[in-house]
């Protein structure tokens, strides 16, 4: 295990963490404001990837694909909100979980029916092709760095929106005590539509950005969804700051654990069992970390509500 490998995997982990944050941010805000648990949020990420890949192939340009996929993802999110989700706000979490689970079944199958089960390819844009030299003899793809930069930029933008604007103040107030905000004359439904649409678009954006490096297939939203849940549980539900820190943490632990643990274990045991135990342990690591953090702080690192 060399320093170069560690550097590359660390960067990969941060980049995955940034993608996770884009998905988790919408999830945590929607839950914070409306007390609504939306399993179908991962589907939004998948739709983003599919729409981006198809539109990029159709227009022949990654950038046009990206620009067109964002409003398309927004429209999908708002249609779902209008059709299904808004009938669930007054219901218990169990109903919300099940109904949004039904939405996942439908959309995963719809994607399979339209695009087929085989993974879709999306080419890296020419502008971001090639690699940069991190160390002598060690290249790192420019596109992956672009994901990292774009994700951090969006995170910064989100921070300004939530912490420094009037709408952000309303969203934070809504997350702390929604009925009080409604009683003060704020249209909480309208505010929620806004948060929801924005969250859907962020997840869609993450999907488009991920499409050229990860495989675009019908189950891709589910994996990200569950990790996003881990992120917002660790970070404290409703907290964007918590989601950001937890997302980077989860991204790095997940990536480093899966790639480095087999090598680490080989120092203390034979190669074949080390590979197996390492793979098993590596995939468990994120959840073990979550269990440890929750054992100490049951409401996450940055709980919003006392």
């Amino acid at each position: 295990m060399s320093l170069g490998l560690l550097l590359v995997q660390g960067l990969n982990g941060l980049q995955f963490g940034v993608l996770l944050f884009l998905v988790a941010a919408g999830l945590t805000l929607v839950f914070g404001v409306m007390d609504f648990i939306n399993l179908a949020h991962g589907v939004q990420y998948m739709l983003g990837a599919y729409l981006g890949a198809s539109l990029a192939a159709w227009t022949g340009s990654f950038w046009l694909g990206l620009v067109l996929a964002l409003p398309a993802a927004l429209v999908c999110g708002l249609v779902l909100e209008w059709l299904v989700f808004r009938h669930l706000y007054e219901r218990d979490h169990l109903s919300q979980v099940l109904a949004t689970f039904g939405v996942i079944l439908f959309l995963n199958e719809a994607v399979r029916a339209i695009w087929g089960s085989a993974p879709l390819q999306m080419p890296v844009p020419t502008l971001l092709e090639g690699g940069v030299q991190l160390m002598p003899g060690l290249q790192y793809p420019v596109y992956r760095i672009a994901i990292l930069v774009a994700g951090l930029a969006v995170a910064g933008l989100l921070w300004v929106l939530v912490e420094r604007t009037r709408i952000g103040a309303l969203v934070r107030a809504g997350a702390t005590h929604a009925p009080m905000v409604a009683a003060l004359g704020v249209d909480i439904r309208g505010l929620f539509m806004l948060v929801f649409g924005f969250g859907a678009m962020l997840a869609g954006f993450a999907g488009v950005m991920a499409a050229p490096v990860l495989s675009v297939d019908p189950g891709m939203g589910d994996t990200v969804l569950i990790l996003a849940f881990v992120v917002i549980t660790i970070g404290g539900i409703g907290s964007v700051r918590g989601a950001f820190i937890a997302a980077l943490l989860v991204g790095v632990i997940e990536t480093l654990g899966r790639s480095l643990l087999p090598d680490l274990l080989r120092l203390v045991m034979a190669a074949s069992p080390a590979r197996q135990a390492g793979a098993a342990l590596g995939s468990m690591l994120v959840y073990i970390a979550m269990a440890l953090i929750l054992a100490v702080r049951p409401r996450g690192l940055f709980p919003v509500r006392g």
């Binding site: 849940f229 929750l294 409401r299």
Partner: peptide
């Protein structure tokens, strides 16, 4: 509440990935 839902989901997923890696 919702924390419980998410944590059981996460532990379930942990078991799933462990089973997948049992070569």
């Amino acid at each position: 509440g919702v924390h419980f839902i998410m944590i059981t989901l996460a532990f379930g997923q942990m078991a799933f990935f462990t089973a997948s890696s049992l070569a």
